[in-house]
Design a protein around this nucleic acid. Structure first.
Lengths: 142, 142
DNA sequence: GCTTGCTCCTATAGCGGCTAGAGCATGTAG
DNA sequence: CTACATGCTCTAGCCGCTATAGGAGCAAGC
């Protein structure tokens, strides 16, 4: 009888790399699964789902702590989804901020690159703007 | 006679924190300055400029290796600025990619949040999409 | 001179989220 | 039975800092 999915299979099915799965177990994001007599981890379908949830959440930029909360919420379906909503909304705000900041950064880089004389470093717009903060229009965060 | 600027002053002038300055020295981004008899670092105007250059470059998202190259270029003004140009251009490409990815992410998050019934977790769109990758339209990187 | 209190010093460890490598044990196909 | 893939643990490394501990230096006021 072959009960339980090996870590490699669960990795393939979920898209989470093997060492990352072990890391998630270590930090308590994924429960420690039962082991075979030989000491190998054996997973089931629930674990695969959980890992897929985690991977997807990470792709969407949620950090581990947020994912922990989201997973706990998923486990109690009768609770209000206010908290999940809140996490997503807060994250959306952060993403919008980052886009705004990166867009300003993009414009500044364009200005640098376009203004470049393609000559000697002495007259290079790129170096010039980096050296003199006053010549730069970007004052945000990356 | 008080020759040399103390690390605190250079920090204030450049906007780079004191431990970060020491860190930059450690990794060879900033040359080790002379010391007082008591063993304190003494900087000059050039160092302040260099640190400002570094800070500004970091704000624009360049990594330490790129900054090393840019600083070397700045020190040899007669060279062609092709390389500086290249670094800036490559970085611009990365920034544009990131913006595109974050914009897709933003839309997906909006869809999640807007679709939320604000009821129980069981019917929560946020949790639902995270659990089922197929329901998500975002398939990029953050 | 002496004390107060600020700045500075080194050295080490930690952050997040993994990833890589060493050196073994186990499971499986031919 | 043997080869080889896959698994195991443990440790260290990545980036760019930041924080903490435990001291030493130095200027100003008394």
């Amino acid at each position: 009888m072959n009960h339980g999915i090996a870590i490699g299979k669960v990795s393939e099915a979920s898209g989470v790399k093997v060492p990352t799965i072990r890391y998630y177990e270590q930090i308590g994001l994924l429960p420690a699964p039962p082991r075979t007599d030989g000491g190998r981890r054996t997973y089931d379908g629930k674990d695969t789902e959980r890992l897929t949830f985690i991977r997807h959440s990470r792709e969407l930029g949620f950090d581990i702590d947020e994912i922990k909360t989201l997973l706990e919420l998923q486990d109690s379906p009768d609770q209000s989804c206010e908290q999940a909503d809140g996490i997503a909304k807060a994250h959306l705000v952060e993403v919008r901020k980052k886009i705004a900041s990166l867009t300003a950064l993009q414009h500044e880089l364009e200005r640098m690159v376009e203004g470049c004389s393609h000559g000697r470093v002495e007259t290079c717009r790129v170096i010039e703007i980096l050296a003199d903060h006053g010549k730069c229009r970007y004052h945000g965060e990356t």
